[in-house]
């Protein structure tokens, strides 16, 4: 038997969440005595197949076609369906990136496969069935999703599992996968793509997040936070209040109606700690809160707290880290 893993990528690079998922698949497969089969869809993506082998795949199916050069949910779902038919896996995993979530859902829906979306942990029961742990009620309840039949499919949130070590000595087989796109011809036409990558780190993949709320007082109030983030290689996040006020774009929003994050370090600056915000960040390893109000609820979840003016504390913190990290 096998575990099939969808490898999501962008601009020629595998996304970290893809390799994390592949690493977990390797662990599950070793328990089951299964093989791990990777799937790479795109154009001129063979190097990614070789990379997938270094991360633990035994075999990689490559759907390489000029027609697949840009992401299209339906064409990619057709490729995933073809891979499922070819591999006959008992478990299918994909990272819970925006594109991969759609591809997984379309393929699973068409094939009548049970799918657990946006999981944060995976395990096996005594009968070798997948147990998919996922937050529900917007992070306020954790549920384990169980499956009625095989195959069993799950999408996995970034940073749920460690990045596996790449072993260049590993060997495996790379096989072309032929995909018939006739069924979705004319369904979807990509007219353009505009990157929103500004060189800034995304809150979903960041090890450290420096986040601002109402206390930053305006768009320019995020500047000191950006400087601290730059020194730490961190992402800049925000509370809903700051986003709704138009001080920072929506992709930065952390919380119930934004992103759920779990960095190693979360620095909350001028964030009071409304329930909606806490639901999105309490899984962070260490939380630091900087707030003028010593009774702010954010201090209830913080490991370290500083009561004071963020416009004084944050720049001082930037200087201190810059000195400590030798920049």
């Amino acid at each position: 038997m096998s575990i099939l893993v969808y490898i999501d990528h962008f601009a020629g690079a595998g996304k970290p969440a893809s390799w994390e998922t592949l690493g977990k698949a390797r662990e599950l497969a070793d328990t089951l005595g299964d093989s791990v089969i990777g799937l790479v869809i795109g154009h001129q993506v063979r190097p990614l197949a070789a990379e997938a082998i270094t991360y633990g795949a035994d075999r990689v199916l490559v759907a390489d076609d000029p027609a697949l050069a840009t992401f299209q949910a339906h064409a990619y779902a057709a490729a995933l369906k073809a891979a499922i038919a070819e591999a006959g896996p008992r478990i299918i995993l994909a990272p819970a990136t925006t594109g991969a979530r759609d591809v997984a859902a379309l393929a699973a829906g068409e094939l009548g496969i049970g799918l657990a979306a946006d999981c944060q942990d995976l395990a096996l029961d005594g009968d070798h069935n997948l147990l998919a742990v996922r937050p529900v009620f917007s992070g306020n309840i954790i549920a384990t999703e169980v499956f009625a039949q095989q195959p069993q499919m799950a999408t996995v949130r970034g940073r749920s599992f460690p990045l596996p070590e790449s072993d260049p000595a590993r060997t495996g087989e790379i096989k072309d996968l032929v995909v018939d796109l006739a069924a979705v011809a004319g369904w979807e036409e990509v007219l353009g793509f505009e990157t929103t990558q500004t060189g800034e780190v995304s809150v979903e993949t960041a090890n450290i997040i420096v986040s601002g709320g109402r206390g930053v007082k305006g768009p320019e109030g995020f500047e000191p936070l950006r400087e601290l983030a730059q020194v730490l290689g961190a992402a800049v996040g925000a509370s809903r209040a700051a986003v709704d006020a138009g001080w920072i774009p929506y992709p930065a929003q952390v919380g119930q109606t934004g992103k759920t994050v779990r960095p190693d370090l979360y620095v909350a600056c001028g964030i009071s700690g409304a329930i909606q915000h806490l639901a999105g960040m309490t899984n962070s390893k260490v939380i630091v809160a900087i707030n003028k109000d010593k009774d702010a609820p954010i201090f209830n979840v913080a490991q370290y707290g500083i009561v004071g003016d963020l416009f004084e504390i944050v720049p001082a913190l930037t200087r201190a880290f810059r000195a400590r990290l030798g920049q």
Binding site: F10, A11, K15, T70, F71, Q72, T97, T98, G99, E188, E189, V190, L191, G192, F193, E194, T195, T196, Q197, S202, E204, P251
Partner: peptide, 10 residues
């Protein structure tokens, strides 16, 4: 809205 940018699709 994809993770890395905005795709216009018909």
């Amino acid at each position: 809205a994809l993770d890395e940018g905005r795709q216009t699709v018909r």
